[in-house]
């Protein structure tokens, strides 16, 4: 086995995995706050990336980045308030379909406004590859991994150490009790959606330089993120991050070392993983098996 190739594939797998982890974390955040699996998460991320693309034409990268995150936050929170809230009490089927409706609307809106052309998207991490022990690593890949880890740490610190984070956790776990203690539960849920959209925006802006920016860019990423979230247990944030990195590295190594797995087969493999986990360990690696009330 060629050690250099292996190391490079692991790092580039970690970079892909970082994107999956961000999106998976967004899915988990929404699942924990509102018990919705958001099928539109990928499309929302794609939409905010297009916004970032337009902003990038007017200003330099980092101001555009920050503005995009702010936009994503407001957008996510607004979606929760306007379309998710009315179906809060409805059946699973209805809620899933609402997110599907969002998926179609957002995808169509981007096609409409930005046209289906492929576009280049800049990366902030440019320059010579980093050389460690004679092995070259692309700077963008290192950058993605660092940015994702930083985001996860910030998010964890927010939920662990701030009063708002505590209120959000309370609103997710015991909405009634939280409300009695003066937490504005409705707004906490909207904040959850806002943070998820921010994570999605980061995932989108990091994916776009790897592939080309187009309206269907995030659909495969969403499947990997689903696989990651399910692998880690759909209600476990740590599981989602670990699941994301595992899926990223695993798929990359499979594609490198198993002849049968060509690039077209990477998605079907992710699908098989998803089905496999759902069948044999539906709660995921870090999830707890929920008892069903009869």
């Amino acid at each position: 086995m060629d050690g250099q190739l292996f190391a490079q594939q692991v790092v580039s797998g970690l970079a892909n995995g970082a994107v999956y982890a961000s999106l998976a974390l967004a899915l988990v955040l929404i699942y924990r706050t509102t018990h919705v699996v958001n099928f539109a998460q990928g499309e929302m991320a794609m939409f905010t990336t297009f916004v970032a693309w337009s902003l990038n034409n007017r200003m330099s990268y980092w101001p555009a980045f920050v503005l995009t995150l702010a936009f994503a936050f407001v957008f996510g929170a607004a979606i929760e308030r306007v379309v998710i809230r009315p179906v809060e009490q409805a059946s699973h089927l209805t809620v899933i379909m609402v997110t599907i409706a969002l998926f179609v609307t957002v995808n169509g809106f981007v096609l409409w406004v930005w046209t289906p052309d492929l576009r280049d998207f800049p990366t902030p991490f440019t320059g010579e590859p980093v050389v460690v022990a004679g092995v070259f690593f692309a700077r963008h890949e290192i950058g993605i991994i660092a940015l994702t880890v930083a985001t996860v740490v910030v998010l964890w610190a927010f939920f662990r150490f701030t009063k708002l984070g505590l209120a959000m956790r309370a609103a997710a776990i015991r909405p009634e009790a939280a409300r009695l203690l003066g937490v504005r539960v409705g707004w906490m849920l909207a904040l959850g959606w806002g943070f998820a959209a921010v994570l999605g925006a980061i995932a989108g802006m990091m994916t776009a330089p790897l592939r080309l920016l187009d309206p269907n860019m995030m659909q495969p990423v969403l499947i990997y993120a689903f696989a990651a979230a399910v692998l880690g247990g759909i209600a476990s944030p740590a599981g989602a991050v670990i699941g994301g990195f595992t899926i990223g590295v695993g798929i990359n190594l499979l594609a490198t070392y198993v002849d049968f797995v060509t690039p077209e087969l990477e998605l079907p493999v992710a699908f098989a993983v998803l089905i496999g986990i759902l069948l044999f360990r539906p709660a995921g690696i870090f999830g707890r098996v929920a008892a069903r009330r009869v």
């Binding site: 179609v104 957002v106 169509g108 809106f109 096609l111 409409w112 309206p215």
Partner: peptide, 13 residues
């Protein structure tokens, strides 16, 4: 190209 999708989505919603 996106107009039909937007219509599908909004009408479904």
């Amino acid at each position: 190209p996106g107009v039909p999708s937007v219509l599908y989505g909004l009408l479904l919603l």
